[in-house]
Design a protein around this nucleic acid. Structure first.
Lengths: 256, 256
DNA sequence: CTTGACCTTGACGCAGCGTCAACCCCGCAT
DNA sequence: ATGCGGGGTTGACGCTGCGTCAAGGTCAAG
């Protein structure tokens, strides 16, 4: 007969594991010899190998017990179920591989350089600090989601800043930051935004944005983020919506 | 700014997980608002998404911290390493699938019927109870390891029992069980075994056995099991070895 | 008789959170 | 102003599947 150490090494598990299986009632406590040592037979080896096989496959010990004590048909059904779970896990791991790869290619964890450049230019034209912070946060999120699109998007944004109307927009936003209850100011801003959006729609810029960021849930997240940033955002969204534009992070012409 | 609940839902983790990441220093504690609520910015979302991605891939949190605070090259190297581990895990899971499948097809956990038949015949020809128990244990192990070979092996074994010399062997074993210090008896038994092994070698039976059970480590396990069963086994092995045969569970002609 | 390799029970430790408990806070309807 | 529902806060214990001491008893060998 076998001592616990030999049993464990035959089955390829640790002694501690065997004792744990005794504790949880997975493996019956065997007879003891004169000196109190546990004394195992071949049945124990077989059962232990089965326990190990199931446990290594990730089956919780509680279920292992059910399985080993079940009749053959039930066991077959359950092992088919486990097989399905294993396949699912394998697919999940493959998915993780892809995601890890994407994490690696994202330009570290800092805000991308291109974005920093753009934010500096925003500051240069007199955009308010609060707006710049909000934009930074938004671009960090976008960069985390679609790192490969950032250079193109930033190039576009910088180009837009050459437009005097865009500069005026940020000046207006600066005034709103000081007093966001001025309805006249808000409406003026909304008018200007509407005008700029019209231009962007004509040049195909809006369609391009929805193409580059094709994740509606994510966009909603960003929008709600913007709403939370400042009450004026919600009001501006309303006013711009009255002028036929829905969205915020990405705008679209509302269905007529 | 975000509350903890919104942060968690954006990143796809639980609130409790976020707080845990704070505790272990993975995610910095953010500012609090007037009422003591944590108030997160976009950086937190990004960092949290990265944490989740790594953690879900099975990376321990301690390593996640190292990784996130590492420079991009180190990160790239580490993520390559993680990718390798994921591949290994995937292969392991596939291996588990195969083993679980084999578990299912093994005739439950009891000793196979064919083996019971064989053991009954052993008893019928007068083999001692101790020897029968030892054989039962051995066959349980073999059946657990190669269930598909059991019918063939048992058919062979039953056929062997038709050989009067085999019957005589078991009778001798019965006498050894009563007094295992009788060297003359042991030598007589070894001579008989040697003779039978010679026949088995000529008929190709021995080669067939090593083919059917191609796992040297497992065979050593069985041998040591036999040694532990009774001191006479060890002595018999020596004597049979002197006659040119190594092994026990499976014999082979020793290299000359 | 010692030594070293085994065995015994008992207990605490670990990750990565889940899950109470007991309490604040905020907006909304009454 | 009051109650309610759905947030948030800290603190603490629970869970799995063992690893890892601690403080010994046992056994074979030298």
């Amino acid at each position: 007969m076998l001592t616990i150490g030999r049993l464990a090494s035959y089955a390829g598990v640790t002694i501690r594991a065997v004792r744990h299986y005794h504790q949880v009632g997975l493996l019956p406590e065997p007879e003891r010899d004169a000196s109190g040592y546990r004394s195992y037979d071949a049945n124990a080896v077989v059962r232990l190998i089965r326990i190990r096989t199931l446990a290594e496959a990730g089956v919780p010990l509680a279920r292992v017990r059910e399985l080993l004590d079940a009749d053959p048909e039930a066991f077959a059904a359950a092992s088919a179920e486990i097989d399905r779970q294993l396949r699912t896990q394998i697919r999940a791991l493959q998915e993780h591989r892809r995601r890890i790869a994407r994490l690696g290619c994202g330009d570290s964890l800092a805000v991308p350089e291109k974005v920093v450049d753009y934010l500096d230019r925003l500051a240069a034209i007199g955009a308010p600090a609060a707006a710049i912070e909000a934009e930074r946060d938004a671009w960090i999120l976008i960069a985390a989601r679609w790192p490969e699109s950032i250079p193109m998007l930033m190039t576009d944004k910088v180009t837009q800043l050459a437009n005097p109307k865009v500069v005026r927009l940020y000046r207006l936003i600066g005034r709103i930051a000081e007093d966001w209850t001025d309805e006249k100011l808000l409406r003026e801003t909304a008018d200007l935004m509407s005008e700029l959006l019209e231009q962007a729609a004509v040049s195909g810029e809006l369609d391009q944005q929805t193409e580059v960021m094709p994740d509606a849930a994510f966009i909603r997240l960003m929008d709600s983020f913007a709403d939370a940033a400042h009450p004026a955002v919600a009001r501006l969204r309303e006013l711009v919506a009255e002028r036929g534009w829905t969205g915020w992070t990405v705008f679209a012409k509302r269905d007529p």
